[in-house]
Amino acid sequence: MTEKQTDYGRLLIGEKMELFAEAVRLAVAQKEASESTNFTWAFTGGSTPQAWYQWAAETDAIPAEVLASTHFTVSDERCVPLNSDESNFGNAERKLLAPKSVPVEHRHPWVVAYEPEKAAEAYRRTMQLLNPPGKAYDVCFLGMGDDAHTASFFPGSELLKSDGSVFFAAVDTPQKGWRLTITPTGLQACGLIVVMTLGAGKAEALKRVLEGDDALLDAPSKILKTCADKVVWLVDEAAASQLS
């Protein structure tokens, strides 16, 4: 892998499998260095995380003691049932948490059966019980869409203007409906943020975020500049192909 420093965090460029392994290494190292009573690790949605779940389950990539002692959740969620293929937590549970026998009491989905605002409030209470004051997650995994969105911050998102200083919120997203998500304030309260960005389809967006002059509302992943000291980008050659 090659490494570069950017205004948006460390950038590691490598092959898919070594990036998958690096994601585990980073999270496990964060846990080993943590003094948290309840270590919290949030996954994310999309095709790359689903491939990572399958790889991690098949290769026993995450040490058994880490799986048994970590509290798992997702950094954003669609308002759909957990058994839906669209559910971020549902996919993590089906592809990794259940196959690796993570204790049920260590699995923390958003309460999608509630109305969005009530779901966000219930989730905030759960995370407050797990984490010390001022902490959102110990480890937060994110992805980036080809429109440069991350978490549920889509272009023009009201959360990029003001998030009410809460760590988690519900947001009504044009054309996509209600989402439940960590907020910009929440990102700043994470211990480590790992952004996995793979494939040629992400190359233009990555260029816009890391080197372009787009406004934040047009390229939401630029929000990561506010917490760059804790951000690591894991990027393959295809995604990095337009970077200077």
Results as ranks from 00 to 15, higher is better:
45 G>K: 04
115 E>K: 07
20 F>N: 09
198 L>F: 12
3 E>W: 08
39 F>C: 15
40 T>L: 15
92 A>F: 07
63 P>L: 06
65 E>V: 10
158 E>Q: 11
121 E>F: 13
9 G>N: 03
185 T>C: 14
24 V>F: 01
65 E>G: 09
89 F>H: 04
12 L>D: 00
55 W>P: 01
84 S>N: 04
100 K>F: 10
47 S>A: 14
63 P>M: 01
215 A>F: 12
20 F>K: 05
4 K>R: 15
165 S>P: 00
38 N>V: 07
5 Q>K: 14
30 Q>A: 15
191 G>M: 08
17 M>R: 10
22 E>L: 12
133 P>M: 14
99 P>G: 07
7 D>I: 01
99 P>L: 12
209 V>L: 11
127 M>Y: 00
119 A>G: 02
175 Q>F: 15
93 E>F: 12
177 G>H: 11
190 C>S: 09
21 A>R: 10
46 G>R: 10
221 S>P: 04
175 Q>H: 09
231 V>K: 11
97 L>D: 02
95 K>Y: 06
170 A>Q: 06
230 K>H: 08
132 P>C: 11
221 S>I: 13
126 T>K: 01
191 G>S: 04
183 T>G: 08
55 W>V: 06
52 W>L: 14
226 T>H: 08
174 P>I: 02
106 H>V: 06
76 D>V: 05
210 L>W: 01
81 P>W: 01
73 T>A: 12
79 C>V: 15
163 D>K: 08
146 D>L: 11
23 A>C: 09
126 T>G: 00
53 Y>V: 01
66 V>H: 07
79 C>M: 14
32 E>L: 14
71 H>V: 09
89 F>S: 00
107 R>H: 06
69 S>D: 15
17 M>Y: 14
164 G>P: 05
102 V>P: 05
4 K>C: 10
71 H>Y: 14
128 Q>K: 09
227 C>V: 14
149 H>L: 13
26 L>R: 12
112 V>S: 05
4 K>A: 14
39 F>G: 13
97 L>F: 15
171 V>Y: 03
